[in-house]
């Protein structure tokens, strides 16, 4: 092979591989991205059953029900709208009524959100950012951040 041929082989194999990588990434981005909605956005966008989503908001006080066989139901609210959620499994340590929560899953035919994973806050001071934004959008955000937390501890 001449010097030029060698270089061309190198360049074309590199371009081919890059093209393949770009193709895979674009393909994966089309089908494997999950949108995040608050309860109000969910009603506005009229999400159909079966589409995978993440929803976030506050666990509405008084709606948490433990059914038999680790099944639980609760409602996620942003103060304006709410979505009923059902979940089977153990809840995270910081899951509480009135606290922020993020759930991933899909709506079923009865418009109940079937969550396959439920995430809560990492510690009592922080709210998942998506939840805070969703609440701010609805104007029901209350500053419950660091100061309130540390004040209560003294």
């Amino acid at each position: 092979m001449t010097r030029k041929q060698k270089r061309l082989t190198l360049i074309f194999s590199a371009l081919g591989l890059l093209g393949a990588a770009v193709g895979i990434v674009l393909f994966a981005l089309r089908d494997n991205v999950v949108f995040f909605y608050g309860p109000t956005e969910m009603t506005e966008k009229q999400v159909g059953p079966g589409q995978r989503l993440r929803i976030g908001g506050l666990v509405k006080p008084g709606t948490l029900v433990h059914l038999e066989g680790k099944r639980i139901t609760f409602s996620v609210t942003d103060g304006r709208n709410e979505v009923p959620v059902s979940y089977t499994g153990l809840l995270p340590d910081l899951f509480k009524e009135g606290q922020g929560v993020v759930a991933e899953g899909a709506l079923d035919k009865a418009h109940v959100f079937r969550a396959d994973s439920v995430l809560a806050k990492h510690d009592e001071r922080y709210m998942p950012r998506e939840v805070a934004d969703a609440l701010k959008k609805q104007g029901v955000w209350q500053e419950e951040g660091g100061k309130a937390g540390s004040g209560a501890n003294k």
Partner: peptide, 18 residues
Amino acid sequence: GDKISVGAPFFNLTFGPL
């Protein structure tokens, strides 16, 4: 302003074959 999350399925599909 759209909020999305890109999770394990994306990475398994792209990182895996590469």
